[in-house]
Amino acid sequence: MIFQGRFGLTSVAQVPGGGALSDPRSKRSLRSRPTGADLVFRNLTSATAITVLVIMLLVGGFLAFRASEALIDAKLNFLTETQWEPDSHKFGVLGILVGTVLIGLVAISFAVPLATGTALYISEYAPPRLKSTLISLVDLMAAVPSVVYGLWGFFLLQNKVVPLAQWISEHFGWLPLLGIDSDGYEKGSALTQNTVFTSSTFIAGMVVGFMVTPIMCAIMREAFSQAPIGEREGAYALGSTQWGMIRSVVLPFGKGGMIGGSMLGLGRALGETIAVYMILSVVPALQPNIFQNGGSSVSSLIALRYGEAQQFSLSALFAAGLALFLMTLAINFAASTIVARSRSGAESG
């Protein structure tokens, strides 16, 4: 694929160990002796790799070390407690993790259809000369800073989405997660305020969803475009429509990419801070209603509380950060395994 070498075909200047070639029967050593410069190079790069590794392990180790104080104090309650009052030694991640996951779920329920549709459009439907522009545009969308998405979500999207949120929760409020459990809220009452529906998990999740869509889209598009030509043509030859071909060739082939991409996007959505912090009214408690004002996420809780946290509360925040990290870590590893397994061909393995 890539050929840019300057040593493509040059005259052979010297062959190390060339003498061995003269006697084809004797076994020559395949091991080349590194030169002094090679040793320097090797040591330099290894030193860098070790430095990087040490930094990474330090970050992880320090995170675990600082979290340990709070974890030892809270024991298993850390996983079951919904409140966040580290000063009263009554704290746990259940509430905020549920909040984080809800934001992530809302995000991917917006992002997955959008990303799949766009990826399919780019790889299957778009006119060939538009393709690279579209790819660039989607990548560009991934580069827009999260604070810009946050601004957009808070100032523009929020007011437009509130009626939709209200409509859904009024008609489908009997479903779990979609209702409103706010004191004094009456369904369909003309006096229902906007405030019941603003700053909600749903709006935060929606903005985060738009933010992670391009990441998912890029991975899915790559997976789709690798669907083999032969099978595509085979499908057409059997009289399939374009959609039929996509369903029977492209989608099965790109399934791993779709799942992996969605999970990578989910991992990113869970860790997103600033857009969530701008929109959500942070209430560190178990609040499962996505349309209702107030929610929580680990990262926005850290952003809110780090400054005033004393030794122990900071340790509790580290524990929350560790929990979030482990969650995104698990998701990312699962995702990259799925993506890697789904790829055919050795070049990317």
Partner: peptide, 25 residues
């Protein structure tokens, strides 16, 4: 190298706020 790659890959999952919290602490 494999070990380092795994750790680096793991660290890409580090939420940015946690990176900030680390330097803060």
């Amino acid at each position: 190298a494999r070990f380092t790659r795994t750790i680096v890959e793991a660290m890409t999952a580090l939420p940015s706020i946690v990176a900030g919290l680390f330097i803060y602490a």
